[in-house]
């Protein structure tokens, strides 16, 4: 069971590539690998916390008010993470800006609360939160790394390209986000069809 949850979260039901959830932060903050990693980990923290607490209390919440109740719990975790990041990672917090409070409306978090945590025990919910979060982080990181290397010629702010490389600026500009994600999706479909073809 736990193994299944992990595989589902990380790959076969990957939030970005399979379910197309949480696309706003995916496109917005992936201008560099560091930002992508920071955003992914912040979301993972919120997701794990909300999954865990919702799985504890879900059975006490009347059905008709469960969505508002989940939103309050999620908003609470988001604000705590927001304050902690501002206190400890000030410059990263500034770059991510309003996308940290916007984790509240990230469909991944509410989606996992409704679809998984409200029906499963705390241990499973914790594992689910962690693996879905890490799966999301990995997707962000891949996109962020590509965009940073091609658009700025750096990786984690270290130059990685030849000095004669003229950065393809569009990769870090807004249209680049859509284009790169589109190409990554195409790559995923290509890889999936190859895996199927070999079987």
């Amino acid at each position: 069971m736990i193994k299944n949850i992990i595989i589902n979260g990380l790959y076969s039901n990957n939030a970005t590539f399979k379910q197309m959830l949480g696309l706003c932060p995916t496109l917005a903050v992936t201008t560099s690998a560091v930002n992508a990693l920071g955003m992914g980990l912040a979301t993972t923290a919120v997701l794990t916390g909300s999954n865990l607490s919702i799985s504890f209390i879900a059975r006490y919440i009347p059905k008709n008010v469960r969505i508002p109740a989940y939103i309050v719990i999620i908003a609470c975790f988001v604000t705590i993470i927001d304050q902690m990041m501002k206190a400890n990672f000030y410059s990263l917090h500034k770059v991510l800006g309003i996308f940290i409070p916007l984790i509240v409306v990230n469909c991944i978090v509410l989606g996992r609360a409704e679809a998984f945590a409200s029906k499963n025990n705390p241990v499973y919910s914790l594992v689910d939160g962690l693996s879905v979060g890490i799966g999301f982080t990995i997707s962000l990181f891949i996109l962020g790394s590509f965009r940073e290397i091609i658009g700025s010629g750096t990786f984690f702010n270290m130059p990685v390209m030849l000095s004669s490389y003229d950065p393809l600026l569009i990769a870090v500009m807004p249209p680049g986000a859509f284009l790169f994600l589109g190409f990554l999706f195409a790559c995923k479909q290509f890889i999936d069809s190859r895996i199927k073809g070999e079987k």
Binding site: P175, L179, L181, F183, F185, A186, C187, Q189
Partner: peptide, 16 residues
């Protein structure tokens, strides 16, 4: 391989 979502994103990129 571009059928479905990939082409939609690329279109969004061009609109952007």
């Amino acid at each position: 391989y571009f059928q479905g979502m990939p082409i939609v994103f690329i279109m969004a990129g061009i609109l952007s």
